[in-house]
Design a protein around this nucleic acid. Structure first.
Lengths: 204, 204
DNA sequence: TGTACATCAGTGAACGCGCGTTCACTGATGTAC
DNA sequence: TGTACATCAGTGAACGCGCGTTCACTGATGTAC
């Protein structure tokens, strides 16, 4: 009763669908996508492999669910970090601060969860990963709109701005996640890139 | 004698090491990294699985060799495409043309060989993928130096320039390779990104 | 130039393993009466 | 409120498969004499 792993009984799990996705996520986070398998997830959830087929058609579908879940969490991570950033009294300075917070958070997630990050955008469904990652993309759009409102966005580049910002930071994030760039060089690289993006957008 | 698949005899292959790397590369290109295996490569090379252990310690080492080979080919691809680009008579225009050619070639490779591109920078050795990819990185440095020489590089951003350019284009390349961006939007995205990079570097 | 022999690059069979998936089943749940 | 029973979420054993790697071996190569 103190720590009821199973909600209803020892026979029925009660929430196996969600538990499986959570377990799969942890598995990937610690051992990589190649370690993800029906049997491993079943073991981690304390359930027989066959049980998972009540909740997922096959391994591929489970993967897709996990991938979507990670995209969602990445978005929420970005949002949380941006909203936790201390603001100044200057409205225009704040737009820039919040913009930079998104970039930092993005790199931060890639560093903390490289394996999750790597598969966040992987094509596992047939769906074309709508809008690049839904929430994250919306946050970026929003932030660029804020820059525009305080006059920090060059009209000539407005349309291209989201793509430029996304691609620049995403490029670094991938390198960070792949450990292709040394830990101590990452912060410097991010500053350089945010500098470049802001120059491109006309914010400085 | 007309088409000697085996160089020396039917028993000894003659060049199994290189042939195996080539076969492995083709396998990845067409079926993805997960299809790469000792047995598959052996089959494709017309040799027994055990034979490969005369040339590679294990699967992991074969992977590493292939990865290095792909990085080399990517560099050569960039160089070839840059040098094939028609030039104008303006020296400063040429620096920009050659710079843009590198960006285009990078995306081009990612589009044509998404699976090869994906593993080009993957960490399979213990080596930290020296210099981001050796030849490709050198070509970028060289190109930025050319921009500098014709006065198209803002002094303030000179140090950061390679990182900015690399990260921006790499970000798009990854999205392209992952099919996370639609075919017909890719060209537009590249133009936007090169625009952004050139604004950042002070080239326009 | 001819031959004995060490060297080396192959063969082929076998090993143990973990995998995704299926199937007949069983035990708990919750609804109709 | 109590009971019969359909429904549903689990079990556990089994399937066939392809994998990386090892091992004793064999056949070709090339060198020393």
């Amino acid at each position: 009763m103190l720590t009821p792993v199973r909600k209803r009984s020892d026979y029925h799990h009660g929430d196996l669908g969600h538990a499986a996705i959570r377990a799969a996520k942890n598995l990937i986070d610690s051992e990589g996508l190649n370690s993800l398998g029906i049997r491993r997830v079943a073991e981690a959830t304390g359930v027989s492999p066959a049980a998972l087929y009540r909740h997922f058609e096959n391994l591929e579908q489970l993967k897709a669910e996990v991938s979507a879940q990670i995209r969602l969490e990445l978005g929420e991570f970005l949002k949380a970090k941006r909203d936790r950033t201390p603001l100044s009294r200057s409205k225009s300075r704040n737009a820039l601060i919040r913009f930079e917070a998104l970039g930092e958070a993005y790199i931060d997630y890639a560093r903390k969860h490289p394996r999750l990050f790597e598969i966040a955008f992987i094509h596992c469904d047939e769906k074309p990963i709508s809008e690049f990652g839904d929430l994250a993309w919306e946050l970026l759009q929003e932030s660029i709109k804020e820059l525009d409102e305080v006059g920090l966005l060059d009209r000539k580049i407005a349309v291209a701005a989201p793509m430029i910002a996304w691609s620049s930071v995403h490029g670094l994030a991938v390198l960070v996640a792949q450990r292709a760039i040394l830990q101590r060089e990452q912060d410097q690289a991010l500053r350089q890139i945010m500098d470049g993006v802001e120059r491109a957008l006309g914010a400085r």
